[in-house]
Computed example of a mutant assay.
Amino acid sequence: MKNSRRSYSLFLVLMAGAAGALAQTPQWKSVQLSAGMHLIQAEVAATEAQREEGLMYRDKMPANAGMLFVFGAPATQCMWMKNTPLPLSVAFIDAAGKIVNIEDMQPHTLDSHCSSKTVPVRYALEMHLGWFKQRNIKPGMNIGNLPPAR
């Protein structure tokens, strides 16, 4: 009887841990984007709550994965790295899909990284630090298959 109680208790502890791990990795809608010949699997942050959370608390992300922030109206946008342990680069993208500027961001900082004030943007795409530079993706190039902004 003692062994079965211990086994059951261990089972409950393991299940609670698994549920907690799943709760920390939200299941967001994702899209496949293109940047030249490169494919990106991007989670979509389209609501204010999703944009506020972004990649916070994530300590890993696949190599060609990122997060696409979709904004309701074209404007100057700024990003920060509060509670974000991954070093990231962010591409600010206009409504037509053209990259306006790219900024590098360091983990756990509150520094603002903003789009160019002269061109309103509709999207921001966060990828691993240096991802755009390593693939020679620069401002003026297009990101394909962006979802329509609502």
Rank of each mutant, 00 (worst) to 15 (best):
Lys2Gln: 09
Arg5Pro: 01
Arg6Ile: 14
Ser7Val: 06
Ser7Asp: 04
Tyr8Phe: 14
Tyr8Cys: 09
Tyr8Leu: 08
Ser9Arg: 06
Ser9Ile: 14
Phe11Arg: 06
Phe11Val: 10
Leu12Ala: 11
Leu12Met: 14
Val13Gly: 04
Met15Ser: 11
Gly17Ile: 07
Ala18Leu: 14
Ala18Gln: 06
Gly20Met: 08
Ala21Gln: 15
Ala21Tyr: 13
Leu22Glu: 07
Thr25Pro: 00
Lys29Ala: 12
Lys29Phe: 02
Ser30Lys: 13
Val31Asp: 09
Val31Cys: 09
Gln32Arg: 09
Leu33Val: 07
Leu33His: 11
Leu33Asp: 08
Ser34Cys: 03
Ser34Pro: 00
Gly36Tyr: 05
Met37Pro: 04
His38Trp: 06
Leu39Ile: 10
Gln41Phe: 01
Val44Phe: 07
Ala46Pro: 02
Ala46Asp: 13
Ala46Leu: 02
Thr47Lys: 05
Thr47Cys: 00
Glu48Trp: 00
Gln50Thr: 00
Gln50His: 02
Arg51Gly: 00
Arg51Leu: 00
Glu52Gln: 12
Glu52Cys: 01
Met56Tyr: 00
Tyr57Ala: 03
Tyr57Ser: 05
Asp59Phe: 13
Asp59Ser: 11
Lys60Asp: 07
Pro62His: 13
Ala63Leu: 08
Asn64Val: 03
Ala65Phe: 07
Ala65Val: 03
Met67Arg: 03
Phe69Ala: 04
Val70Glu: 02
Val70Phe: 01
Val70Asn: 01
Phe71Arg: 05
Gly72Leu: 04
Gly72His: 07
Ala73Tyr: 12
Ala73Gly: 12
Pro74Trp: 10
Ala75Leu: 07
Ala75Thr: 07
Ala75Gln: 12
Thr76Trp: 08
Gln77Tyr: 09
Gln77Leu: 11
Trp80Gln: 12
Met81Ala: 05
Thr84Ala: 01
Leu86Glu: 01
Ser89Asn: 09
Ser89Trp: 08
Ser89His: 15
Ala91Lys: 03
Ala91Asn: 05
Ala91Cys: 03
Ile93Leu: 10
Asp94Trp: 11
Ala95Asn: 08
Ala96Gln: 14
Ala96Lys: 13
Lys98Ile: 14
Asn101His: 13
Glu103Ala: 15
Met105Val: 06
Gln106Met: 12
Gln106Asn: 11
Pro107Ser: 12
Asp111Pro: 00
Ser112Tyr: 10
His113Pro: 02
Ser115Leu: 10
Ser116Gln: 15
Ser116Pro: 03
Thr118Tyr: 03
Thr118Gly: 00
Val119Leu: 02
Val119Glu: 11
Val121Cys: 01
Val121Trp: 02
Glu126Trp: 04
Met127Ile: 06
His128Met: 08
Leu129Ala: 15
Leu129Met: 13
Asn136Lys: 13
Lys138Ile: 11
Pro139Glu: 15
Ile143Asn: 08
Ile143Ala: 02
Ile143Thr: 13
Ala149Ser: 15
Arg150Leu: 07
Arg150Cys: 11
Arg150Asp: 11
